[in-house]
């Protein structure tokens, strides 16, 4: 059908257009663009390293927090909770996934960031201050806050897919485990081990979402192009630099560089998502065949 083909056309057009529009910066900076941390619109010196760093670190923080919680939620929903509780909490979590990111960001500015500045970060500093990650002034706005907001945002995605994957594991396996005298947790652990590639897929999908997330991160990450060890320090991510500077970019080279950042972002999310689809598919296909 013609319209189905138009989707393929649109995606190819996106790639083509971003490739063409970023040609100026690609020609000037080459591969050095990825490894340079200069970003000075006035001197027309551009490099994406600080943004790549910001995106990677904030997403990793998010994963580190969201993954254990999501697995717990998925286990709770599919194995522990009864039908009524399970579906209603499942529904709440679905809504959590549908709340616009601007609202997360807004909430982040007025609730999370002040809380981080006044309570959580000083607390970390008191007890774990010897680790370089938790040193420096607690700004509230910075890498750590961005990571936490992202964690809240990707938990619903990871947990709902993990739940589906867990449900795809045949019940007979768990019954067999019980029959051998396993405790409930041991049976669940076995199911989790069997579902591990699907859970990995869910995680990677969550990662893809975190990497591409724009508004919420922009509003709490602090928007300062720097690479610092401390997680309290403000940072910058690929998506947020585009959001902040694109509309008022100072010249052709600036725009072109921002589009190249967008191209990198596209490439990264493309790879991450393809990987995730493949992993999830490999588990659920087995369940479909059953």
């Amino acid at each position: 059908m013609f319209f189905a083909l138009s989707i393929i056309f649109v995606v190819l057009l996106i790639i083509y257009e971003m490739f063409i529009d970023s040609s100026q910066s690609r020609e000037k900076f080459g591969f050095g663009f990825i490894f340079s941390s200069d970003w000075e619109p006035v001197k027309e010196e551009f490099g994406a390293l600080t943004f790549i760093y910001g995106t990677v670190v904030s997403s990793l923080i998010a994963l580190a927090i969201a993954l254990p919680i999501s697995i717990g939620v998925a286990v709770f929903l599919s194995e522990i909770a009864g039908k009524t509780v399970g579906t209603s909490i499942g529904f709440l979590i679905e809504i959590l996934a549908a709340i616009p990111s601007i609202i997360y960001g807004f909430w982040g500015i007025f609730v999370l960031a002040p809380y981080m500045r006044e309570s959580f970060q000083p607390f970390l500093q008191n007890y774990l201050g010897f680790i370089p990650l938790f040193q420096g002034t607690p700004f509230g706005f910075g890498m750590m806050t961005a990571g936490i907001i992202l964690a809240i945002m990707i938990t619903p995605i990871i947990s709902s897919i993990t739940r589906d994957v867990l449900k795809a594991i045949p019940v007979s396996q768990r019954e067999a485990a019980y029959a051998l005298g396993a405790t409930k947790w041991e049976a669940i652990k076995m199911a989790l081990l069997n579902a591990k590639s699907g859970i990995l897929g869910a995680t990677v999908l969550g990662l893809g979402r975190a990497v591409g997330e724009t508004m919420a991160v922009t509003m709490v990450i602090g928007n300062r192009a720097q690479i610092k060890t401390s997680l309290f320090e403000p940072a910058y991510s690929m998506a947020s630099v585009i959001a902040n500077e694109f509309a008022e970019a100072s010249g052709q080279m600036h725009i072109s560089s921002l589009i190249e950042v967008g191209l990198i972002l596209f490439g990264v999310t493309f790879i991450i998502n393809s990987l995730a689809r493949f992993l999830i598919f490999s588990v659920t296909r087995k369940a479909d065949m059953k």
């Binding site: 057009l13 996106i14 971003m18 893809g208 990497v211 591409g212 585009i242 972002l265 493309f270 689809r277």
Partner: peptide, 16 residues
């Protein structure tokens, strides 16, 4: 391709 499209960050669509 549809999956790819749903995974593209919305800001990239903005650039497009």
């Amino acid at each position: 391709i549809t999956d790819v499209l749903s995974g593209i960050p919305s800001i990239v669509i903005g650039i497009f």
